[in-house]
Amino acid sequence: MRINFTAVFGAAIGVALGLAGAASAATLDDVKAKGFVQCGANPSLIGFATADEKGEWSGLDIDFCRALAAAIFNDPTKVKFTPLNAKERFTALQSGEIDVLSRNTTWTMSRDTSLGLKFAGVMYYDGQGFLVRKALGVSSALELSNARVCTQTGTTTELNLADYFRSNNMPYEVVAYEKNEEVLQAYEAGRCDVYTTDASGLYAERLKLAAPDDHMILPEIISKEPLGPVVRQGDDQWFNVVKWTYYALVNAEELGITQANVEQMKTSENPEIKRFVGAEGEFGSAIGLSNDWAANIVAKVGNYGEIFDRNVGPSTPLGIARGLNNLWTKGGLQYGMPIR
């Protein structure tokens, strides 16, 4: 915390409250110097980023930031979270207020190219889905002909919906509301048969229904919403750290390295595992970290599958199946680039 003379008379005391060094080219050096990662997070999204009664953060996006802290400091607590709403998230990243944005942000071309941002990976493959009552007796979205569909007005959700039903030649009726709460209420009250929004959102909203178990999410996903961590353009070293933190999480699951067995794995003879835990090669130092960076991530936070199960998986209230987020070997899209 530093303050200079002119600022004292100009902006007075408050400047100092948050006058943080930041946005220079070498984010990794800055992060190491200040001793923590500043991570932009969603203020409140079930399963992805929520703070409990004691103010402890948890969630899939949160755990990614903890993994990043573990990779750099071998300490998952060396991370500070800045809650950001959708409008200010990119400004916060561009202005250097945060080091990484892990806030269910969809990877799109315009964001990747013209906003001066770089997406480091896809922590969660989301997409628009459909929530229906089990009593309706449908098992596929293709059986939803003539359905009344609840959705939010003025969102891409509404457009995706129109595309999907038109291309499948199904007549339908839209029941649109301004706010999410209204949509859910309308669905609960039976004013529509189907509720559509992003699948992760459907799982979260389902918890707010009186009898969540009477409702199900149909398998069809009709849009692409790849959500992942974002960094500023122009700092390739930092980009690599964030990107390979993500790949380390996925690789760990592929190799069967878990929080529980990572210590034994350090003596494994498997060359891939040896490279992963840093027993062979100098992969950590190549990105400015210690050589056991990947092992530290798994030891402190777990692998991708563990993070998924802990925050959104079947054993949590959300109960989201792995689906597209399964490993590529199990029919999903999560694919860890090889460490070699």
Partner: peptide, 13 residues
Amino acid sequence: LFLPSGVTIDKLF
């Protein structure tokens, strides 16, 4: 965005 990079004024302030 107007401030020089590296200078952030506290949001609450």
